[in-house]
Amino acid sequence: MPAAMSEGPIRVLIVDDHPILREGVAAILALQNDMVIAGEASDGREAVAQYAALRPDVVLMDLQMPGMGGLEATEAIRAAHPDARIIVLTTYAGDAKAMAALRAGAAGFLLKSSLRRELLGAIRAVHKGQRHLHADVAQDIALHAIHDPLTPREIEVLQLIAGGHPNKQIAWKLGVGEETVKSNIKSIFAKLQVNDRTLAVTTAARRGIIEL
């Protein structure tokens, strides 16, 4: 029987590398009659092990952690336990981050800034088999759904642009011709609907496609 079908309070596994955040979330959950803390983990590998040992109903998974991050941990847990219900928590907004989390198998995506308002409702919704996305993120996903995503190579090029590298240096680093880089940049501009390098970088960073 799937873990989420269990009777009694919702058992929650909290995964975050910051003890203060884990303590804050635990304090919120402790006030709820229908929730209980199943356990805690400070990184992705520990989360995978804790899930296997504890089989919680819902996992709150931080996205950015040293070592194995939240996306990798979500994929690993879902591969071993397809019924796992995971809510990804992140400081960073952006449709690209959310889509990556959903593709990894997450059922929810929450910004840490909205935890006080949305955490409990998200846990209850995901426990029932529903999805929960922060409203701004859901709107961004809908807005960009019709656009072609950047390829891994285009993201690589854009990350190098963000690092201040000129085309010739990008070509050398990637082992391709400068014309190929120019073609990549033209495609990036078209997909992001921008017309200069600075705007391409800021737009991609805002959407969570690259990190600055």
Results as ranks from 00 to 15, higher is better:
1 M>V: 13
1 M>Y: 07
2 P>W: 11
6 S>C: 07
9 P>V: 07
10 I>T: 12
13 L>N: 03
13 L>S: 04
14 I>N: 10
14 I>L: 15
17 D>C: 06
17 D>A: 06
17 D>I: 06
18 H>S: 02
18 H>W: 00
22 R>Y: 07
22 R>A: 04
23 E>I: 00
25 V>S: 11
26 A>P: 12
28 I>R: 13
29 L>T: 03
29 L>N: 05
30 A>H: 06
33 N>G: 15
38 A>M: 01
38 A>T: 02
39 G>E: 00
39 G>R: 00
42 S>G: 10
42 S>K: 14
42 S>H: 12
45 R>I: 00
47 A>W: 06
48 V>E: 02
49 A>G: 13
49 A>K: 12
51 Y>T: 07
52 A>D: 12
53 A>P: 00
53 A>C: 02
56 P>S: 09
57 D>M: 14
59 V>G: 10
62 D>Y: 09
70 G>Q: 04
72 E>C: 01
73 A>E: 00
74 T>A: 07
81 H>Q: 13
82 P>E: 04
83 D>M: 11
84 A>V: 08
84 A>Q: 11
87 I>E: 05
98 A>E: 13
98 A>C: 15
99 M>N: 11
99 M>C: 12
105 G>A: 05
107 A>T: 08
107 A>Y: 13
113 S>R: 15
115 L>P: 07
117 R>Y: 07
117 R>G: 04
117 R>Q: 15
117 R>F: 07
119 L>I: 04
120 L>W: 03
121 G>I: 02
123 I>V: 15
126 V>S: 05
129 G>V: 09
130 Q>F: 11
131 R>L: 14
132 H>M: 12
132 H>F: 15
135 A>S: 14
136 D>F: 12
137 V>Y: 02
138 A>R: 11
139 Q>N: 01
141 I>A: 04
142 A>H: 10
143 L>M: 03
144 H>I: 00
144 H>A: 01
146 I>K: 03
148 D>E: 14
150 L>T: 04
150 L>R: 05
153 R>E: 13
154 E>L: 06
157 V>H: 07
160 L>V: 07
161 I>Y: 04
163 G>D: 15
166 P>W: 02
167 N>T: 10
168 K>G: 05
168 K>C: 03
169 Q>Y: 02
172 W>C: 08
177 G>W: 03
178 E>S: 13
180 T>D: 02
181 V>Y: 00
182 K>V: 01
182 K>N: 08
185 I>V: 15
187 S>N: 12
187 S>K: 11
192 L>H: 00
196 D>L: 02
199 L>F: 00
199 L>H: 07
200 A>V: 05
202 T>V: 14
204 A>E: 09
205 A>F: 04
206 R>A: 15
211 E>T: 12
